[in-house]
Nucleic acid binder design. Structure first.
Lengths: 151, 151
DNA sequence: TATGGCCTTGGAGTGCACTCCAGGCAAGCG
DNA sequence: CGCTTGCCTGGAGTGCACTCCAAGGCCATA
């Protein structure tokens, strides 16, 4: 069902059907991580991490003296938050908007709060929808369980 | 934010942020509906309805003597179910697979049940994820509410 | 010194789920 | 009769979120 092209960087293709992505816990008192460490922690691909940066979804990421990315714990926190937002179905453009507000400073607290509250409402709605779907699924599964005619 | 090209067929562009799509209830004792009636009932576009048919997601839809589609109540039930599946995040290809199983008859009951149960597990997982996100959102919103430093 | 591994970049490519277009047919109305 | 409205088709186009490619830099180990 899954052709796995065995790319060098691919780890978990963010399969939205996998039960819990179970990201590795952050290890020690370090505060700078290479991109491949961040891949291991977050489950995102290196491609995606670089892309997030390009589109303005990341605050500026530090570089080593050779130009390689060095992520901080703060960056990881942000990525965790972004990942949470992402699985609410929020479009990336909206997350970029939020990131911009953060960059603009305290004056945008109100707008940020409004954005999160609207997202919160979306999430509640989505949960309600899913519960409705669950009810339908249970009914159909019930039919099949007793071999009744159903489609 | 939304440019509306005022197409002749577009009704609701399936905005996943709208609260409840609130589909019109089916009216009377009729059992054949034009495509535009189905658009009104389901919130899907006519384009999408025709596309669903092309890819094998619909059982064969009746035609009027002039070749226009005439949907039955059974078709509408199927579309409702498909719509429910769709908002679990199930890929269209998987829904087509389910439709094929239905077409193949009773011998596929077991496989269908398995498919729905796997979907059910996905839905439970998704709900759990969303609850986790909700907790994060509430924490952040709490910060903003008291104007505390947060990002 | 060379080989391998990890990282860099801009830009092109992919897959999904629609979404639209152009051209045309049939029915109803003034 | 002409016009509008609603529907038809195959095929092309769109937007999103990645995903991959080719060419190359840096560094450690053999």
């Amino acid at each position: 069902m899954h052709t796995t092209p065995a790319g060098t960087e691919r780890t978990t293709p963010l399969d939205h059907c996998a039960p819990p992505p179970r990201q590795h816990p952050r290890p020690d008192g370090k505060d700078h991580y290479t991109i491949s460490e961040v891949v291991a922690f977050t489950g995102l691909t290196a491609h995606t991490l670089r892309w997030y940066e390009r589109i303005g979804l990341m605050p500026h990421v530090d570089r080593s003296h050779t130009g390689q990315r060095r992520y901080t714990n703060r960056d990881l926190d942000w990525l965790d938050f972004v990942t949470k937002l992402r699985l609410t179905g929020m479009p990336v453009a909206d997350m970029v908007r939020y990131a911009e507000l953060v960059r603009e400073g305290e004056s945008t607290y109100g707008e940020r709060q409004a954005l999160l509250e609207s997202t919160r409402r979306d999430v509640l709605g989505r949960i309600a929808e899913l519960r409705g779907t669950l009810a339908v699924l249970d009914k159909k599964i019930g039919f099949y369980e007793q071999g009744a005619a159903a489609h």
